[in-house]
Amino acid sequence: MNLDHAGVRLALPTGWEARARLQPSNVPGRRGNLLLHAATIPLPAERGDFGSGVVEHLGPEDVFVSLFEYDAADAGKALFATKGLPVLRPSDFSTAHLQRTQLGRSGGQWFFQVAGRPFCLFVVLGSHSRRAAGAARATALLLRTTVKELA
């Protein structure tokens, strides 16, 4: 099953679901930036950009991913200097990297650019103690993700 929206294509592994939309643009006439969510649990229609409304329901094996695009003009900033989708290592995850600290959960955040498009990737794992398996599951999704340049 594929999800294809605004130049980002996900070939979703079994058990994953995803939703993607364009955020309202600050500049009239300009394309809005992409906000993509994927998770191994059902995604509710109402949810925060970084997963509020979803991460509370993650089980120990579950993973939530948010891909948040920034304005193309930001691609030149040092924050987005890393090129290409990140490689997620279990050691990158921490219980302190969450928007709101939740018992047992673990999070990680990466800033990078692909095809001249700057992104923030935010990943929440259902269990910090099982972060090796969770990181592998999130990586499996990223390996099936492609980003194209947009005008």
Binding site: L12, T14, E17, A20, R21, T40, P42
Partner: peptide
């Protein structure tokens, strides 16, 4: 919104 709802969660 583009959606891909999983039936195997």
């Amino acid at each position: 919104e583009a959606v891909a709802l999983s039936l195997t969660t």
